[in-house]
Design a protein around this nucleic acid. Structure first.
Lengths: 353, 353
DNA sequence: TTGAAAGCGCTAACAG
DNA sequence: CTGTTAGCGCTTTCAA
């Protein structure tokens, strides 16, 4: 139970023979301390193993050194990366991360309240889709808490945000499929409430348009970003009179659903049908064949979000930090290939569901 | 910027016409307050929208209302469930969760230090494999912080823990395969540093032994709990002169690797080979066919861990709470079925890697 | 460039 | 049963 009393700022002051206020100045990099004294105090603090007490700092200075991460995104993989990125950055800056997963059934504003008023986090990171929930944004602003949105869909100017160029990523993926020789490329849309969904569709349509291709309406299927919805869309697509030779699902989970449907129908991937996803999730690497997809800079996005929050905290509330755009990467793996010559196409078997 | 001054305990006291200490008593459910007064104070506090300041409580009472979760487990799915369980319970008890993912490259003890000494969490939850890292346990105990281990492997009596019966779960899974008619059931072991690994092996061996079966040495393959290692083990098993008719991988990721190897070798699952996993991870439901597996009560385990920590915090450090054992569930899905009659067995194709 | 005093909002000891 | 008095460890005035 080694409950030796905590080393406080006063212990350091005494050891250094200065007032504890001077120590405080040194620790907070405040001006007006002789460099020599500053160095000495730092050395002594390190030697004593002094660590400032967060609660005391909060109480006196109103800074909690806490950053909150709220999410209602069902993708474990996405969230895991978001957390890793945010925490890595927090660690090097003396901040801590409070995570707050929201279930669809939760009253988000009510759940938010304690974080805002009891804990008094210094900033909040919001991921899609909750970053587009206006009631949430209102509640946060009402509490006077700073926040950063990751890949928001609407009101991009309302608060700082970090994002990647979904449109161009989807555009490039479609170009990849095109370059393989595909012409009949179908697309599965994402969850309508999800900002990235329309952007990915836009990129796809642009590439198809530039290639001079007309996309039949039935080649664009609705989806929910879930495995299940990808499966349903895949079955619909493969059952068409003129089925596509490639399917671009706008996230990995749906792409996996498409692969399920294809294999279930006796088709081989990518021999009979190429499948592409979006996210580079862990399951995308565990599928057979592995999925061609887009790697999002997810961890980098949340790390950037932390940076923005901390910068803001240090500069005071006045200045509005710039938004940040990060780079994606096309990851070509086994699930996409050249289409078969028309003569060699296989009919999908009847699907027994 | 609604930065209206925070409502404090004194505001409530004034409004109620009592001393602020009485309010404190009411809020903390301390004895010695007339019920009538108690109710009145509660009503007024609610009316004013009073929320106690966590930092002040911490500073004065030494209680941070923070619980830390440390993990170095690579499974996103496992961690996601652990977090959900812990946070759900925290939410109903006024606690907050600080998460701290550890990379293999991190100096765990050094990373731990700020959590222990700056933040002064009230308790720590440790998941495998870090819960068996003795240096970590030493550091935590040295700091006098309470902790609960989830499914630890060794020194079960050193601190409270919550776990499930891995031995019996693996036993039941093996029984399931046996009941389907399999006799040649292979097993892929887990990461040697992982406590559950030997327990699952034990359950498998017990079931095979009770069935009067002798397991050839080459039917027990090493593994690392990773997709990759499952793939390698699967290829080895399927390439045997007498390949098994069923493979029980001791986690889902490896089972998915086995399925990859099987499909790659031109075998069908479960027609040619049955595959079973362990964990009921998200990818296990996205595979084709879906994986037969064991659902671990993961969220329940971390919720129980939070309970133990909070109980302990309220009762003081003296009493040692009891460990908790939770129930698992066998989830039978498409990847296991009856073996083909011997006459109908297929040779695996040459694997081109 | 330094230091002293005054709290931050709350709980812990004591008194009444 | 209720109130008073001290701090917790730090930052923020303001004075030297």
């Amino acid at each position: 139970m080694a409950d030796t009393r905590q080393i406080t700022i006063k212990d350091v002051a005494q050891a250094a023979g200065v007032s504890f206020k001077t120590v405080s100045r040194v620790l907070n990099d405040e001006p007006n301390v002789r460099k020599e004294l500053r160095d000495r105090v730092k050395a002594i603090a390190a030697e004593l193993g002094y660590v400032p007490n967060v609660a005391a700092r909060d109480l006196a200075g109103g800074r909690s050194y806490l950053i909150g991460l709220m999410f209602d995104n069902p993708s474990e993989s996405y969230i895991s990366k978001i957390q890793t990125g945010a925490i890595t950055r927090c660690r090097t800056t003396g901040y801590y991360l409070i995570v707050e997963p929201l279930e669809p059934t939760d009253d988000v504003v009510a759940t938010l309240e304690p974080i805002l008023s009891r804990l008094r986090v210094e900033g909040l990171i919001l991921t899609p889709p909750i970053c587009d929930n206006l009631a949430v944004l209102d509640a946060i602003e009402r509490a006077g808490v700073r926040y950063v949105r990751i890949a928001p869909d609407r009101d991009a100017d309302r608060a700082p945000c970090v994002a990647m160029d979904d449109v161009h990523a989807a555009y490039e993926m479609t170009r990849h499929l095109l370059s393989l020789g595909h012409r009949d490329i179908a697309f599965i849309k994402g969850h309508p409430g999800h900002g990235a969904a329309p952007r990915r569709l836009e990129g796809y349509l642009r590439a198809m348009g530039e290639a001079g291709l007309v996309v039949p309406a039935e080649h664009i299927q609705p989806g929910q970003f879930s495995f299940q919805s990808g499966m349903v869309a895949g079955e619909a697509l493969l059952g068409l009179d003129h089925p596509p030779t490639a399917i671009f699902a706008s996230n990995d989970d749906m792409a996996l659903g498409v692969m399920w449907a294809a294999l279930h129908a006796g088709l081989s991937v990518p021999g009979d049908i190429s499948v592409a996803g979006f996210d580079d999730s862990q399951p995308s690497r565990m599928a057979w064949p592995q999925l061609t997809t887009v790697r999002q800079p997810i961890a980098e996005m949340s790390a950037a979000a932390v940076d923005i929050l901390i910068e803001g905290a240090n500069r005071g509330r006045a200045s509005q930090p710039a938004n940040r755009w990060l780079d994606y990467e096309l990851v070509v793996r086994g699930s996409t290939g050249a289409p078969r010559p028309v003569s060699a196409r296989v009919e999908p078997r009847m699907i027994s569901s």
